[in-house]
Amino acid sequence: MKKLVYLLSPFLLIACEMVLDIDIPEFDPSLVVNGVFTPDSTFSLILSRDFYILDNRSDDLQNAGVDGATIRLYEDEKEIGTFSKDSIRQAHGAGFYVLDYHPVQGKAYRLEINKAGFNSVMAMDRIPVRTPDISILSVDTIQSEYEAEIDIRLQIHDSPGKDFYELQMYQLDFGLTFLGDSVTDISEYFTPAYFESDNIIFESYMWERKVFGDALFDGGHYEILLKLRGVTSYIDYLNEMYGLELRGRLVLEVKSISEAYYTYFQTAALQRSVRGDPFAQPVQVYSNVENGYGIFAGYSPYRLEIRP
């Protein structure tokens, strides 16, 4: 909008900007929940706080974590237990909580959080009862002059009813330990892999992840083509440089996600993508946390390792 004024100003000659400070009443702080749960893991979440928009701390959320909260978990309205501080992750800052309990598909989980100085918050969700049904149709490596492209063609077999999915690829990376010029140890870890796809179902994309709904293929089969470029380049370099025989691997992860998870991710991605655009209406981010913000949601994953 400011650019628009600058655009108009020379035409009007006299148009000018008058700068005035305006105040917006400060709001009470609220709690922010970031927690997802899945059957193969115990509960964990991150609790933080929001900041008034004019608070300079809002530019850096490193110190937003909130410790000392009482977080109770209910399964189908039966109390399961209370979260405790995550002793492993607390080194990274405040706000990490865990509860040693595995969630079950189809059951409703509700959080109640109390912390002095904040309004109590509540959030509820459940893990979708269906795990994604995926078939890999083909994996092709196309070698060009500069890099290799890996094309993965997969098919989703959807069940009738409203379903939501998240798709993400991981690639195997290696960490090398040297003694002089010799490699003494090789560690393996997976990192998110960037991929491209022209499929129209992908409505939003953020941090190498795509979420989508089944509105266009409800109860049917849907084919997706993923293209990954350059994922083996670094491995080829290591093999050539150090005479190694490392081999790359990929992991495809498709999650059945709840509608709350989908809506939160969708709106958050959209808000971030249009920020700064004077011609776009600001996007409000969905939250299923009553009296607070963030997301508490379940998912059911399907994972498959692919060796290109």
Binding site: F27, S41, I46, Y52, I53, L61, A64
Partner: peptide, 12 residues
């Protein structure tokens, strides 16, 4: 805009 808060893309 009234408030800002953090989003954790991978909560694990």
């Amino acid at each position: 805009p009234q408030k800002t808060y953090g989003m954790i893309p991978d909560m694990r």
